[in-house]
Protein backbone atom coordinates (compact mmCIF):
# COMPACT_ATOMS: atom_id res chain seq x y z
CA UNK A 1 0.00 0.00 0.00
CA UNK A 2 1.43 3.36 -1.03
CA UNK A 3 -0.11 6.22 0.87
CA UNK A 4 0.16 9.56 -0.94
CA UNK A 5 -2.14 11.77 1.10
CA UNK A 6 -1.13 12.30 4.72
CA UNK A 7 -2.27 14.14 7.84
CA UNK A 8 -1.34 17.84 8.10
CA UNK A 9 1.07 19.11 10.77
CA UNK A 10 -1.74 21.22 12.18
CA UNK A 11 -3.92 18.15 12.79
CA UNK A 12 -0.99 16.18 14.21
CA UNK A 13 -0.24 18.99 16.68
CA UNK A 14 -3.90 19.10 17.71
CA UNK A 15 -3.98 15.29 18.04
CA UNK A 16 -0.82 15.30 20.19
CA UNK A 17 -2.10 18.18 22.29
CA UNK A 18 -5.34 16.26 22.80
CA UNK A 19 -7.70 18.95 21.56
CA UNK A 20 -9.22 17.26 18.51
CA UNK A 21 -12.90 16.35 18.59
CA UNK A 22 -13.22 12.59 19.13
CA UNK A 23 -14.45 11.96 15.56
CA UNK A 24 -11.31 13.59 14.09
CA UNK A 25 -9.07 11.68 16.51
CA UNK A 26 -10.68 8.47 15.30
CA UNK A 27 -9.78 9.27 11.68
CA UNK A 28 -6.23 10.28 12.66
CA UNK A 29 -5.70 7.16 14.81
CA UNK A 30 -6.99 4.94 12.00
CA UNK A 31 -4.66 6.59 9.48
CA UNK A 32 -1.70 6.27 11.88
CA UNK A 33 -2.43 2.54 12.17
CA UNK A 34 -1.92 2.28 8.40
CA UNK A 35 0.89 4.80 7.87
CA UNK A 36 4.28 4.48 9.61
CA UNK A 37 5.42 7.82 8.20
CA UNK A 38 2.61 9.68 10.00
CA UNK A 39 2.99 7.45 13.08
CA UNK A 40 6.60 8.67 13.32
CA UNK A 41 5.53 12.29 12.73
CA UNK A 42 2.87 11.95 15.41
CA UNK A 43 5.41 10.50 17.88
CA UNK A 44 7.69 13.48 17.13
CA UNK A 45 4.82 15.80 18.07
CA UNK A 46 4.31 13.79 21.27
CA UNK A 47 8.00 14.39 22.06
CA UNK A 48 7.22 18.11 22.23
CA UNK A 49 4.66 17.32 24.91
CA UNK A 50 7.29 15.23 26.71
CA UNK A 51 9.76 18.11 26.65
CA UNK A 52 7.11 20.49 28.05
CA UNK A 53 6.15 18.00 30.78
CA UNK A 54 9.80 17.81 31.83
CA UNK A 55 9.95 21.59 32.18
CA UNK A 56 6.69 22.15 34.01
CA UNK A 57 6.86 23.32 37.64
CA UNK A 58 6.29 20.17 39.76
CA UNK A 59 3.29 20.23 42.10
CA UNK A 60 3.72 18.49 45.45
CA UNK A 61 1.88 15.18 45.64
CA UNK A 62 -0.26 14.24 48.66
CA UNK A 63 1.55 12.77 51.65
CA UNK A 64 0.38 9.18 51.17
CA UNK A 65 0.13 9.36 47.43
CA UNK A 66 2.93 6.93 46.61
CA UNK A 67 1.74 4.37 49.15
CA UNK A 68 -1.81 4.61 47.80
CA UNK A 69 -0.68 3.98 44.26
CA UNK A 70 1.69 1.18 45.28
CA UNK A 71 -1.25 -0.52 47.00
CA UNK A 72 -3.18 -0.41 43.72
CA UNK A 73 -0.48 -2.12 41.67
CA UNK A 74 -0.88 -5.78 41.07
CA UNK A 75 2.00 -7.96 40.06
CA UNK A 76 -0.12 -9.81 37.54
CA UNK A 77 -0.02 -9.88 33.78
CA UNK A 78 -0.09 -6.52 31.97
CA UNK A 79 -3.31 -5.38 30.30
CA UNK A 80 -3.43 -6.15 26.59
CA UNK A 81 -6.07 -5.12 24.12
CA UNK A 82 -7.63 -8.11 22.39
CA UNK A 83 -7.52 -7.38 18.67
CA UNK A 84 -10.85 -7.45 16.86
CA UNK A 85 -10.04 -5.72 13.56
CA UNK A 86 -8.78 -6.98 10.22
CA UNK A 87 -6.82 -5.63 7.24
CA UNK A 88 -9.57 -3.16 6.23
CA UNK A 89 -10.55 -2.39 9.84
CA UNK A 90 -7.62 -1.09 11.93
CA UNK A 91 -8.05 -1.52 15.70
CA UNK A 92 -9.14 2.04 16.61
CA UNK A 93 -11.99 1.77 14.09
CA UNK A 94 -12.82 -1.81 15.10
CA UNK A 95 -13.27 -0.49 18.67
CA UNK A 96 -16.07 1.80 17.46
CA UNK A 97 -17.73 -0.76 15.19
CA UNK A 98 -17.38 -3.54 17.73
CA UNK A 99 -15.74 -5.74 15.07
CA UNK A 100 -14.82 -5.63 11.40
CA UNK A 101 -16.46 -3.75 8.50
CA UNK A 102 -18.42 -6.94 7.73
CA UNK A 103 -20.75 -6.42 10.69
CA UNK A 104 -21.59 -2.74 10.01
CA UNK A 105 -25.33 -1.99 9.89
CA UNK A 106 -25.72 0.31 6.89
CA UNK A 107 -28.40 2.90 6.30
CA UNK A 108 -29.30 3.74 2.69
CA UNK A 109 -28.75 7.28 1.37
CA UNK A 110 -30.10 6.44 -2.10
CA UNK A 111 -28.37 5.49 -5.36
CA UNK A 112 -26.62 2.64 -3.58
CA UNK A 113 -24.70 4.99 -1.28
CA UNK A 114 -24.88 3.89 2.35
CA UNK A 115 -23.66 5.23 5.66
CA UNK A 116 -23.30 4.22 9.27
CA UNK A 117 -22.92 6.80 12.05
CA UNK A 118 -20.33 6.03 14.71
CA UNK A 119 -20.87 7.17 18.31
CA UNK A 120 -18.50 10.02 19.29
CA UNK A 121 -18.66 13.24 21.29
CA UNK A 122 -20.81 15.97 19.78
CA UNK A 123 -18.02 18.36 18.74
CA UNK A 124 -17.86 16.53 15.41
CA UNK A 125 -19.48 13.50 13.84
CA UNK A 126 -17.96 10.35 12.35
CA UNK A 127 -19.48 7.97 9.87
CA UNK A 128 -18.62 5.16 7.52
CA UNK A 129 -19.54 5.71 3.88
CA UNK A 130 -20.13 2.96 1.35
CA UNK A 131 -20.02 4.10 -2.29
CA UNK A 132 -20.72 1.49 -4.98
CA UNK A 133 -18.03 1.15 -7.68
CA UNK A 134 -18.37 3.96 -10.24
CA UNK A 135 -20.94 5.85 -8.16
CA UNK A 136 -20.69 9.56 -7.24
CA UNK A 137 -21.48 11.10 -3.85
CA UNK A 138 -23.70 14.17 -4.41
CA UNK A 139 -21.79 17.39 -5.06
CA UNK A 140 -21.23 19.05 -1.72
CA UNK A 141 -19.34 21.84 -0.04
CA UNK A 142 -18.36 22.19 3.60
CA UNK A 143 -19.10 24.67 6.31
CA UNK A 144 -16.44 23.14 8.53
CA UNK A 145 -13.56 20.74 8.15
CA UNK A 146 -14.08 17.25 6.75
CA UNK A 147 -11.59 14.39 6.93
CA UNK A 148 -12.12 11.40 4.66
CA UNK A 149 -9.97 8.27 5.00
CA UNK A 150 -10.19 5.49 2.41
CA UNK A 151 -10.44 2.00 3.94
CA UNK A 152 -11.24 0.04 0.79
CA UNK A 153 -11.29 0.83 -2.94
CA UNK A 154 -10.57 4.37 -4.12
CA UNK A 155 -12.30 7.60 -5.08
CA UNK A 156 -11.39 10.52 -7.31
CA UNK A 157 -12.49 14.14 -7.12
CA UNK A 158 -11.39 17.40 -8.74
CA UNK A 159 -8.27 17.50 -6.55
CA UNK A 160 -6.79 13.99 -6.94
CA UNK A 161 -7.17 10.23 -6.55
CA UNK A 162 -7.49 8.79 -3.04
CA UNK A 163 -6.70 5.11 -2.44
CA UNK A 164 -6.57 2.90 0.63
CA UNK A 165 -4.96 4.70 3.57
CA UNK A 166 -5.12 8.12 1.86
CA UNK A 167 -6.73 10.96 3.77
CA UNK A 168 -8.44 13.97 2.21
CA UNK A 169 -8.65 17.12 4.31
CA UNK A 170 -11.46 19.32 2.99
CA UNK A 171 -12.15 22.80 4.29
CA UNK A 172 -14.65 25.55 3.51
CA UNK A 173 -13.17 26.29 0.08
CA UNK A 174 -13.48 22.79 -1.36
CA UNK A 175 -16.54 22.03 -3.45
CA UNK A 176 -16.27 18.47 -4.71
CA UNK A 177 -17.97 15.42 -6.13
CA UNK A 178 -16.13 12.30 -5.05
CA UNK A 179 -16.60 9.38 -7.48
CA UNK A 180 -15.75 5.79 -6.51
CA UNK A 181 -13.45 4.05 -8.97
CA UNK A 182 -14.91 1.26 -11.08
CA UNK A 183 -14.21 -2.29 -9.92
CA UNK A 184 -14.58 -2.27 -6.15
CA UNK A 185 -16.94 -0.42 -3.81
CA UNK A 186 -15.23 2.39 -1.92
CA UNK A 187 -15.55 2.41 1.87
CA UNK A 188 -14.42 5.52 3.74
CA UNK A 189 -14.28 6.75 7.29
CA UNK A 190 -15.33 10.41 7.32
CA UNK A 191 -15.54 13.01 10.08
CA UNK A 192 -16.80 16.57 10.00
CA UNK A 193 -17.23 19.35 12.53
CA UNK A 194 -20.12 20.94 10.62
CA UNK A 195 -23.06 19.64 8.60
CA UNK A 196 -22.28 19.06 4.91
CA UNK A 197 -23.90 21.39 2.37
CA UNK A 198 -25.40 19.68 -0.65
CA UNK A 199 -26.08 21.55 -3.88
CA UNK A 200 -29.18 19.73 -5.05
CA UNK A 201 -32.58 19.97 -3.40
CA UNK A 202 -33.18 16.38 -2.32
CA UNK A 203 -30.02 15.75 -0.30
CA UNK A 204 -30.60 19.06 1.47
CA UNK A 205 -34.05 17.90 2.55
CA UNK A 206 -32.82 14.57 3.86
CA UNK A 207 -29.77 16.08 5.50
CA UNK A 208 -31.24 16.71 8.98
CA UNK A 209 -32.75 13.25 8.97
CA UNK A 210 -29.49 11.46 8.14
CA UNK A 211 -27.31 13.65 10.36
CA UNK A 212 -24.71 14.25 7.65
Amino acid sequence: MTIRHHISDQLLTAYSAGVLPEAFSLVVATHLSLCDECRARSAAHDAVGGALLDEVAPARMGEHSLAQVMARLDGGAPIRRSPQGDIATPEPLADYIGGTLNIVKWQSLGMGVRQSILPTDRLASARLLYIPAGQAVPDHGHRGMELTLVLQGAFTDATDRFGRGDIEIATEDLQHTPVAEPGEACICLAATDAPLRFNSLIPRLVQPFFRI
Binding site: P21, S25, R80, E91, Y96
Partner: peptide
Amino acid sequence: SRRPEPED
Protein backbone atom coordinates in the same frame (compact mmCIF):
# COMPACT_ATOMS: atom_id res chain seq x y z
CA SER B 1 -14.29 12.46 25.89
CA ARG B 2 -12.14 9.73 24.39
CA ARG B 3 -9.03 9.85 22.28
CA PRO B 4 -8.80 6.89 19.93
CA GLU B 5 -5.23 5.56 19.75
CA PRO B 6 -3.40 3.91 16.85
CA GLU B 7 -2.94 0.15 16.89
CA ASP B 8 -0.43 -0.99 19.50
